[in-house]
Computed example of a mutant assay.
Amino acid sequence: MMKTVILDEPGHYSLIDRDKPTPKAGEALVKVHRVGICGTDLHAFSGNQPFFEYPRVLGHELGVEVIEVNGDNPKGLQPGDKCSVEPYMFNPDSYASQAGLTNACESMQVLGVHSDGGMSEYICVPANKLHKSDKLNFDQLALVETLCIGAHAVERANPRVGENVLVIGAGPIDLGAMQFAQAEGARVIAMDINDERLSFCRETLGISASVNALANDLEDQLRHICDGNLPTVIIDATGNKRSMENTFKLAGHGCRIVFLGLFIGEVQFDDPSFHRKELTLMASRNALPETFTKVIKAIEEGRLDTSSWVTQRMQLGDVPEVFASVPGQAGQIKAVIEVSN
Results as ranks from 00 to 15, higher is better:
L147Y: 04
V339W: 12
A330E: 15
N70E: 15
A283Q: 14
R56N: 12
H43V: 03
E86S: 00
I296D: 03
N194K: 09
A25T: 14
R285D: 00
F51G: 02
K294Q: 13
G328L: 02
G118C: 03
F51C: 05
E203H: 08
R256Q: 11
M119N: 11
L147I: 03
C201I: 13
I123D: 09
E9K: 15
G26V: 12
K31T: 08
L130H: 08
V5R: 06
I149A: 03
T291Q: 01
L198I: 14
D217Q: 08
K75P: 02
E184D: 12
H114C: 06
E65Y: 02
A25M: 15
N128K: 14
V113H: 13
D8M: 15
A181T: 00
A127F: 01
L77N: 11
P320K: 09
V161D: 07
D93H: 11
N246P: 02
N240H: 13
K249G: 00
A170E: 11
D174V: 02
P231Y: 06
T4G: 08
V64P: 09
Q332L: 15
L147V: 01
E184T: 10
P23I: 09
I333K: 08
P272E: 13
F138T: 01
S199T: 15
V69Y: 02
V35G: 01
E163K: 10
E184C: 12
A181F: 00
D195W: 00
Y54M: 08
D174K: 04
L316M: 10
I234M: 10
K294F: 13
V144D: 08
E301W: 11
L218K: 10
R313E: 14
D236M: 03
V64F: 02
P159D: 05
